[in-house]
């Protein structure tokens, strides 16, 4: 095994950048494979071996790999979030969850009008918004180094970035609907009697969603570039 020269490393980067890979996880894996393989050969064999690798990692193969990976990631995040929710409902943690539910219902019982109801229901979204800003900051910092190293265009992004962003952004854009629903709860006679309980339940569900998403990010941030 030998250390590749700067020119050789630049040649590898140039070859890989031409494949227009936009997933940082796929890009780093392909780059590591190229370098690990080429380190096993002498300088004389470099061009031949690089060509051989290029025949394996074709443009089509890299994009198919990326598409499949992106699809799997979406599925994985959903499964992981559900696992986190279930884990929090296990016996050892159930007391915390019950305590949290009791506090939420106690606060809910003090809700007197649609304004207070709306505030209670929207409260978890404030946490989500702050978390989203932190997430954007963190992931852009983590990807910056790789973009600089590969001289890659701005399209390079972690495969987990968009699935996570969507999960954070979607409930926030629903905020207006939530406020409208709070108004409706207190206006409709049938619902107004149980409006505080509905607000508390809604708030609990949204809190569980936010907390589980944050925990999934904590897990995945250790293994990917977000």
């Amino acid at each position: 095994m030998r250390n590749l020269t700067d020119i050789e490393l630049q040649t590898i980067k140039g070859t890989i950048v031409r494949k227009e890979i936009s997933s940082a996880e796929i890009l780093m894996e392909v780059y590591d494979h190229y370098v690990s393989h080429l380190q096993e050969f002498g300088e004389d064999d470099f061009d031949d071996q690089l060509e051989e690798l290029d025949e394996k990692f074709t443009y089509g193969y890299c994009h198919a790999l990326q598409a499949k990976f992106n699809k799997d990631i979406r599925k994985e995040i959903g499964v992981l979030q559900w696992k986190v929710v279930k884990k929090n409902l296990c016996l050892s943690r159930i007391l915390y969850v019950l305590g949290f539910i009791m506090i939420a219902f106690y606060l809910g019982s003090n809700v007197k009008n649609e304004k207070e109801g709306a505030i209670m229901m929207v409260a978890p979204l404030l946490i989500l918004t702050v978390f989203h800003i932190y997430f954007l900051f963190k992931s852009s910092r983590r990807i910056k180094k790789m973009k600089e190293s590969m001289s890659q265009a701005s399209s390079l992004q972690s495969s987990l970035f968009y699935p996570f962003s969507e999960r954070m952004y979607l409930p926030v854009i629903m905020a207006y609907s939530i406020v409208w629903f709070a108004d409706l709860m207190f206006d409709v006679q049938v619902l107004s009697n149980i409006a505080p309980q509905i607000a508390a339940t809604f708030s609990i569900l949204l809190f569980i969603y936010v907390i589980s998403l944050m925990e999934v990010w904590k897990i995945k941030s250790k293994t990917s570039l977000i």
Partner: peptide, 17 residues
Amino acid sequence: EADGLLTTEIEQVDNRV
């Protein structure tokens, strides 16, 4: 990895991940 049978970790090795 997606099926939950493998987990991954990333490490910096010789200026690459």
